[in-house]
Design a protein around this nucleic acid. Structure first.
Lengths: 362, 362
DNA sequence: AATTAGCACTCGATGACCGAGAGTGCTAAA
DNA sequence: TTTAGCACTCTCGGTCATCGAGTGCTAATT
């Protein structure tokens, strides 16, 4: 499909004006945008051709044209010029990312709301572990004769813990034995290989009669599953409601519902590992609910085995280039923040002597 | 303000029919609801009086009546009969609460979405620590000569941890020293009393030259603040959109925005400690955004020092009695789940020998 | 004194109708 | 190939009449 230079300009004008105003654009408006070098009649016939190619659509005869999904796609692939984030936005992003104080709200929340604020569209942020997670190191801390703390350092550099209270007292010495056995037989073992057989073998080896091993093994399985699992957050869903395409409450509700369903979120378009932005337009979306919306998403590196994803959902009439710029800026910043082992410690007085802390878990 | 029995019946009918249908109710409908024992004319004059008392309102002449805020208030205080949760709902709640598997999604999320699903209104759930939190026990686990894990058992029975990487190697023996000093001087000390003076004194006592004490103290402060802090979640905001009172997109957006703002959430009506349900109707709400909505909220006991709150936001035309029943059922279940030290361990084979685990943290 | 039947009246909702305006496609001339 | 001109189409907004639900008031009834 080869387009004449003029057709490209026309398509581009239509897309950009429609993105701005959300109203079908007519031949006259295009003529003006093009600097009045041609007449409206010419533009009309060009637009008719663009329509027959499937790049433009007409809501009804005697309305202007709007881009079709294919039109947006062509625009995104060939016509859109990439754009930088504004100075202001950049500083907003930087200060948001670097002044985090390990607050109650977790990182995903903050990233999501930052993204949705900047783009004015709903945003989602997720993180998940790629690869296999296993235990790297295992400790039991004695608290009193009924309680102890389990601490496990995982292969992806996160630490998990749990306080366990028993109803029967136990002998403090057993903790050391158990932890050495666990360190011997459970480290490096992925969750799916922690079987009942392994557990009962361990139980026999320790001649454990009060079920301690079972409790601890249960916890280990739990936390390995948890560590692999996906966390996802959606922010700014209300932003949709200001857009004319979602004035129809039912439509808006459908999408907001869809976005609130964590399970569905995981199925949203996922950019490949190249670090490039993935733009999915209208009918390209697999989910029915998104058939007339678009999704822009990008990966970031969350350190260790962790992979993250930030995305924005909006109408097909979306300022793709601005959104893409924001997303990649944020993702870049996040990757630097999380993956870089030289991040500054926060709230500590001697930044130059002390190395980084591990952020992004718990 | 004494109302005749008949006026009460009429008010009650109006409220209940309006709650169901969201349409002004006329005298004829009331007559039917009352079993046709009086004529519509009588009801009309009674309703006129109720209106002059400020309990009913008329959207315009020649429409039926709708309850005013005062009308709802009187209904809630005197006329509403409390209601039990249905068998089905009870089993939904129970299975939701008791089959939790310490999943990635946290408890607040689950409670919120459960509540919003059952009531069909947006729900919020929060938890916060009352009282003072301090460290009860402190441990450092050596990982390698650049890294160690900090584990702290807090006075509210939660455990926090952090993996720390340094850029300069350290001597393993120092960890034991540090932890014994910290156990001596930092346990039982609330966050606001961990001052720079205390830190530098500790630093001197340990002749710490690489800033280890500062890092660890910083972490301790962070986690104490974090432990006291409030977590809040809103679920099901999209539910608003199906209600006729929020067909106006701008109105809906305002409220959804309001609810998404964690800061504002903390200022929502908060029931007192008696365990009773607090119902705030229309203009009784302090926040402007909620002036024509209602909030129903209840506290639950989250174990230890933790206090929780579940609430529902909806139109003044709300099925107060059903919502109240759901909320108190859920809150009761939660309190039992979290506060009861005899909760069954989950996913463990020998439930009778092993005691409870600590839920609701991390 | 309270209740009721009857009736005129009010007011929103619904739908038909109409004119204005924006935009198109087509044709014929440049 | 481009353009001016023109008839045509379709939406949008406003006006108008009609319909019906519901009211308040009055006069008769219990």
């Amino acid at each position: 499909m080869q387009l004449s230079e003029r057709k490209k300009m026309i398509l581009r004008s239509v897309v950009e004006m429609y993105v701005k105003a959300a109203e079908p654009v007519g031949s006259k408006a295009v003529v003006e945008a093009l600097g009045s070098t041609v007449s409206s009649a010419t533009v009309r016939s060009e637009m008719a051709e663009l329509e027959s190619m499937g790049l433009l659509e007409q809501p009804h005869t005697s309305a202007g044209r709007i881009p079709s999904s294919a039109g947006y796609r062509l625009y995104v692939n060939q016509l859109m010029q990439s754009q930088d984030v504004s100075r202001d936005d950049a500083s907003v992003i930087n200060s948001a990312l670097y002044t985090r104080t390990t607050e109650q709200t977790n990182l995903l929340d903050e990233v999501g709301s930052l993204t949705s604020r900047l783009t004015t569209y709903p945003a989602y942020a997720m993180a998940s572990s790629t690869g296999i997670v296993s235990i790297a190191r295992f400790d039991l801390i004695y608290v009193d004769s009924y309680s102890f703390i389990i601490v496990a350092l995982l292969s992806n550099d996160t630490v998990k813990n749990k306080l366990v209270h028993l109803t029967t007292p136990f002998n403090p010495q057993i903790l050391a034995k158990i932890s050495s056995v666990f360190n011997a037989s459970f480290t490096g073992v992925p969750e799916e290989r922690i079987t009942a057989t392994l557990i009962s073998a361990t139980e026999r080896a320790l001649s454990d009669r009060i079920g301690l091993v079972a409790v601890i093994a249960g916890f280990v399985i739990e936390l390995l599953v948890e560590a692999k699992s996906v966390g996802a957050r959606v922010s700014g869903a209300a932003n949709l409601l200001s857009l004319p395409e979602y004035r129809d409450v039912d439509k808006a509700q459908k999408i907001i519902r869809y976005l609130s369903d964590a399970g569905e979120l995981a199925r949203l378009p996922s950019p490949d590992m190249t670090g490039e932005i993935k733009i999915t337009i209208g009918a390209e979306n697999l989910a029915d609910e998104l058939r007339d919306s678009s999704v822009v998403a990008v990966r970031y590196d969350a350190g260790g085995d962790m992979q993250g994803l930030i995305g924005v959902v909006g109408p097909t009439r979306m300022d793709y280039s601005k959104v893409a710029a924001h997303l990649s800026y944020i993702a870049g910043g996040l990757s630097r923040l999380l993956a870089n082992t030289n991040a500054l410690p926060r709230a500590i007085t001697k930044p130059n002597e002390i190395g980084d802390e591990n952020i992004g878990e718990n």
